[in-house]
C-alpha cells in the first residue's frame, strides 16, 4: 500500500494505492489520524485501492468519529465497484460522505 498526501486549499487530500488489509491498515490509521490534525478538512481518494477489508473500514469509521469529535470534515471519493461492494457488505455506505470526483469532494463544505 502506498499513501501520498497533498494540499488543496485548506483541505488535505490523502491518496491510497494498493491493498488495505490487516497488515496495512495500521499505517493508514496512523496517517489519517495525524493528517486530520493538520487541516479542517480531510478528503480520502480511494480510486486506486484494489482491495479493502473490514480492518480498513474500521479504520475509516475511527477517523470519521475523530473528525466529528474535533469538528472537522472527513469525506471519501473515487470508490471503485470493488470498494463499494465492501461498503455495502459492512452496511456503512450511508455513514460516510461519499463523492464521485475530487471536485465534488472539495466542494462539499
Amino acid at each position: 500500500m502506498k499513501i501520498s498526501i497533498r494540499d488543496a486549499g485548506e483541505t488535505k487530500i490523502v491518496e491510497i494505492e494498493g491493498d488495505v488489509d490487516l497488515g496495512t491498515s495500521p499505517d493508514l490509521r496512523r496517517t489519517l489520524l495525524k493528517t486530520l490534525l493538520e487541516a479542517p478538512k480531510l478528503a480520502l481518494n480511494l480510486a486506486a485501492i484494489r482491495y479493502i477489508d473490514s480492518s480498513g473500514i474500521a479504520t475509516l469509521l475511527e477517523v470519521l468519529k475523530d473528525s466529528q469529535r474535533r469538528n472537522k470534515e472527513f469525506v471519501l471519493y473515487g470508490l471503485s465497484p470493488a470498494v463499494q461492494q465492501v461498503f455495502h457488505l459492512t452496511h456503512v455506505v450511508r455513514i460516510f460522505q461519499v463523492f464521485q470526483t475530487e471536485e465534488e469532494a472539495l466542494g462539499s463544505a
Binding site: 477489508d53 473490514s54 480492518s55 473500514i57 474500521a58 479504520t59 469509521l61 475511527e62 470519521l64 468519529k65 465492501v86 457488505l89 459492512t90 452496511h91 456503512v92 455513514i95
Partner: peptide
C-alpha cells in the same frame, strides 16, 4: 449489531452474509 460507534466485529458479519 453493526454501528458507527463500534467498528469492531465487521468481519464476522461479512463472513455470515457472504
Amino acid at each position: 449489531a453493526i454501528a458507527c460507534d463500534q467498528p469492531g466485529g465487521l468481519g464476522t458479519h461479512i463472513i455470515k452474509d457472504v
